[in-house]
Simulated assay, not measured.
Amino acid sequence: MKEQQADTFKCEICGLHYNDKIDAQKCQEWCSKHNSCDLEVTARSIEASKSHHIFS
């Protein structure tokens, strides 16, 4: 886990960004252990928050 900008943290394995350091650490731990992403953690990523689509 690497700090990017002020208060932004990146998982070094999958590259997702988080505002919360703990979420970034959880992401990196999961990625390194399972070689995949945990949907519960990635849902809190900055990328996920930018991609919420509303379908009618």
Results as ranks from 00 to 15, higher is better:
M1Q: 02
K2P: 00
K2W: 07
K2R: 09
K2Y: 11
E3W: 01
Q4F: 02
Q5F: 03
Q5E: 10
Q5T: 05
Q5W: 00
A6P: 03
A6R: 13
A6E: 13
D7K: 07
T8Y: 03
T8N: 02
T8C: 07
T8W: 00
F9G: 01
F9S: 02
F9W: 14
K10V: 11
K10R: 12
C11G: 03
E12F: 00
E12L: 03
E12M: 02
E12I: 00
E12Y: 00
E12D: 08
E12K: 01
I13C: 08
C14M: 05
C14P: 05
C14Y: 04
C14V: 04
G15N: 07
G15S: 07
G15E: 06
G15P: 04
L16S: 10
L16T: 05
L16R: 12
H17C: 14
Y18F: 15
N19K: 13
D20T: 03
D20Y: 03
K21P: 02
K21I: 15
I22W: 07
I22V: 15
I22K: 12
D23S: 09
A24W: 01
A24D: 02
Q25H: 04
Q25A: 09
Q25Y: 06
K26L: 15
K26V: 01
C27K: 01
Q28T: 08
Q28H: 07
Q28L: 03
E29N: 12
W30K: 09
W30D: 08
C31S: 14
S32K: 15
S32N: 12
S32L: 12
K33A: 14
H34P: 01
H34D: 05
H34E: 13
N35C: 08
S36R: 08
S36Q: 09
C37T: 06
D38E: 08
D38Y: 04
D38P: 01
L39W: 01
E40N: 12
V41D: 01
T42R: 15
T42L: 12
A43M: 11
A43N: 10
R44A: 08
R44K: 15
S45L: 05
S45V: 03
S45M: 05
I46H: 04
I46T: 06
I46F: 02
E47K: 11
E47S: 07
E47A: 09
E47Y: 04
E47F: 02
A48R: 12
S49T: 07
S49L: 11
K50L: 13
S51Q: 12
S51H: 10
S51Y: 03
H53A: 07
I54Q: 11
I54T: 11
F55E: 15
F55H: 14
S56N: 13
S56F: 12
